[in-house]
Design a protein around this nucleic acid. Sequence first.
RNA 1: GGGGUCGUAGUGUAGUCUGGUUUAACACGUCGCCCUGUCACGGCGAAGAUCGCGAGUUCAAAUCUCGUCGACCCCG
Length: 380
Amino acid sequence: METFKLITKDINTAARLGELHTQRGMIETPCFMPVGTQGTVKSILPSQLSDSGARIILANAYHLFLRPGLEVIKKAGGLHNFISWPGPILTDSGGYQFFSLALLRKITDEGVRFQSHVDGMRHFLRPEDVVDIQMTLGSDIMMPLDECVAYPVSHRQAQNAVKRTVQWARRSRERFIHCSATADNGLPAGQLFAIVQGAGYKELRAECAAALKEIGFDGYAMGGVSVGEPKEVMYEVMGLTSSLLPEDKPRYLMGVGLPEDILEGIASGVDMFDCVIPTRYGRNGSAFTSLGKIVIRNAAYTSDFRPLDPACGCYTCRNFSRAYLRHLFNTGEMLGMHLLSLHNIHFYLDMMRRARQAISLGGFNGFRAEFMGKYRRGGR
RNA sequence: GGGGUCGUAGUGUAGUCUGGUUUAACACGUCGCCCUGUCACGGCGAAGAUCGCGAGUUCAAAUCUCGUCGACCCCG
């Protein structure tokens, strides 16, 4: 079955409009996937996510494996049941966690040996195990274990990471096919994507993309991006990598990013994005508005009774003033974090909705220029 | 009237006995910046006090002495 359908291509950029079909529903692309690492998009209700236009969310196999553990999720009837999100879920493998929690891990060709950041228990996970975990979760889109490297990194190290990432992707694919054939839960199996690594080295990115394409996956992700490199490098890498990927498969830029980064990604032909920024910024008091980012704790908002973003129709903007939101943050009230996260999620999803509309009308560049023109003026 | 305790940034305290290593420390608050496949309602930074006031001792006083003002407590 075809899982991705390309609907339109933009005229002046590489942007594309598509449909991503999963066992739990169709997702229009380009799309943004809110991040719910531990089985919750922090502080946001599932109903609020769907009301905001979220069609697919992220969860993290590594985190859920450690806590609450697979037995609990199995008994709960799978991750979707457990967290009460009936829509599609993409699970990240944990490759990034082995990168960001580097103190605790040792990577070999066989797999990753690591100590749990939760209780210090020692574990060893092979790529096959990570596929099994995601199968048990009932993931709709699975990511294989990969090796993400920091920036800057030597060519040699980046090359080793690419070799390992490709090998692991191959092994994940074999395991995935085996599991799908013997699945006993009655559900159609999910999909398996692959992850392109290669740091800032163009030939490594090309080599990695070619090798993964050769194996064949349901979609292709770009990883190892936004790990400390300058923005120009990131844009260059994602532009190049995107152009090397098959046109008839979804392209996923992992972990990116700020609104301007996402628009750049769309122009490069990326179909899927995820990022913790809307929720993390929301919890830490920053809000995105059509006129740029604002830090709600700033004294400038003490008596500012306008909504966060006058151009926004979200619950937060329809009901609360900047002055009140500032008050909530200054008093440490949890409602502040919730309302800002909710707004930021809405802002991101609305931006995606408008981007898709612009592509369908053949004018992504115009939309982007207009959006960024306002956005760069600053939220105050 | 007698005795006592205490006055240090916006707030609460440390330092005072044993004067110098204090350009006075800490917490909260205030102000600002940061956050990109989330371990973390998190991280970083800045401003803010002539140590109640005055005199004295001393090379040197938030620190010792005296006076004074203020707050509180106890006894009559």
